[in-house]
C-alpha cells in the first residue's frame, strides 16, 4: 500500500505511468482498427498531464498566498476562458457575442459561486481559495455546457425557422415575438442535460465532487450534502446563464428595423 498523504492514499510516478499504459493500449487498438485516434489520444494525454499538474502547482501556490485579489483574478481568468469556450462551441451564433457571453459568465459565475461559499457553506474568510476556486470551477464548467448548447440551438433553430420568422415579422411581429419559439426550445435543450444529471445522480453514477471527497476520507453523508448543494446550484447557474446568454444575444440576428438576417443577408 502507498503511503498516506493527509488521509489520502498518495499516487506516485509508477501509478501515473501504469494508468498511462492503459492509454497506450487504447492507442494500439486504434492503430490496429485504423480508427485514426492515436495522435489525438497522445495529444490529449500530454495535455491532461501538463494542465492538471500545472493546476495542482498553481492551486498549491494560491492556497499558500491567501490573497483575495489573487482569487478574484483567477476567477476572472476562468470566466474569460469559459466565455471563449462558449463562443467556440456555438458556431451558428452571430459574431460579436463575446461581450454578452462574458457578462453572462461574470453574473452567473460570481453570483452562484459566492452564494454557495458565502450562504450555504459559509466559508471564512469569504475568499478562501480552497473552497472558492474548486466550486467556481464546477459551477462554470457545468453551466458553460448548457449555455453553449442553448446559444447554439437558438441560432440553429432560427435559421431552420427562417421562413416562419420572415412571415411573422411581415405580419408586424417584434424580433422577440418572432424569436421566442426558438428561444424556448433552446433554453429547454440547454437545461435537459443538467436535469438528467440530477435525476441520475447517485443511481447511475457518483458525481465527481462526491467521489473526490469520499476518496479524500470525508464522511459519505457529508459529501452527499455538498454534492446536493453543488448540483442544485449548477442547475440554477445553467438556467440563469442560458436565459441571460440567449436574451443578450438573439437580437443580434435581427436588423435595426427588426428584420431577421437570414443566410446571405449577414456578414459571415
Amino acid at each position: 500500500m502507498n503511503e498516506l498523504a493527509g488521509g489520502v492514499i498518495a499516487i506516485g510516478i509508477p501509478q501515473l505511468l501504469l494508468s498511462t499504459g492503459f492509454v497506450v493500449v487504447v492507442g494500439i487498438i486504434s492503430l490496429r482498427l485504423a480508427l485514426g485516434l492515436e495522435k489525438d489520444l497522445a495529444i490529449a494525454t500530454v495535455r491532461t498531464y501538463l494542465q492538471l499538474i500545472a493546476l495542482g502547482l498553481v492551486l498549491r501556490w494560491v492556497f499558500g498566498i491567501d490573497s483575495w485579489i489573487l482569487v478574484i483574478a483567477i476567477l476572472l481568468f476562468m470566466m474569460g476562458a469559459a466565455a471563449q469556450s462558449i463562443i467556440k462551441r456555438a458556431p451558428d451564433a452571430p459574431r460579436g457575442i463575446l461581450g454578452s457571453s462574458m457578462i453572462t459568465m461574470l453574473l452567473t459565475g460570481f453570483t452562484v459561486t459566492f452564494a454557495v461559499t458565502g450562504l450555504v457553506v459559509q466559508v471564512e474568510p469569504w475568499y478562501e481559495a480552497r473552497y472558492v476556486i474548486p466550486i467556481a470551477g464546477m459551477v462554470l464548467g457545468n453551466s458553460m455546457n448548457g449555455i453553449a448548447l442553448s446559444l447554439e440551438r437558438t441560432f440553429a433553430d432560427l435559421d431552420a425557422r427562417a421562413d416562419e420568422v420572415l412571415a411573422l415579422v411581415a405580419l408586424g411581429a417584434t424580433p422577440w415575438e418572432a424569436a421566442a419559439p426558438s428561444v424556448r426550445v433552446a433554453i429547454r435543450a440547454g437545461l435537459i442535460p443538467t436535469i438528467n444529471a440530477m435525476a441520475a445522480a447517485g443511481i447511475v453514477f457518483i458525481p465527481g465532487m462526491m467521489t473526490g471527497q469520499v476518496l479524500a476520507g470525508a464522511d459519505p453523508l457529508a459529501a452527499s450534502f455538498y454534492q446536493i448543494v453543488i448540483m442544485l446550484m449548477v442547475s440554477a447557474a445553467t438556467a440563469i446563464g442560458a436565459v441571460l446568454a440567449v436574451m443578450l444575444s438573439y437580437r443580434r440576428r435581427f436588423s435595426a428595423e427588426g428584420v431577421y438576417l437570414e443566410r446571405g443577408y449577414r456578414d459571415e
Binding site: D163, E164, V165, L166, A167, L168, A170, L171, G172
Partner: peptide
Amino acid sequence: RRRVTLLPQKAAL
C-alpha cells in the same frame, strides 16, 4: 408592415 403587408411565398404556419 401592418399597413403594407407581405405574404411570403412559403406559407409558414
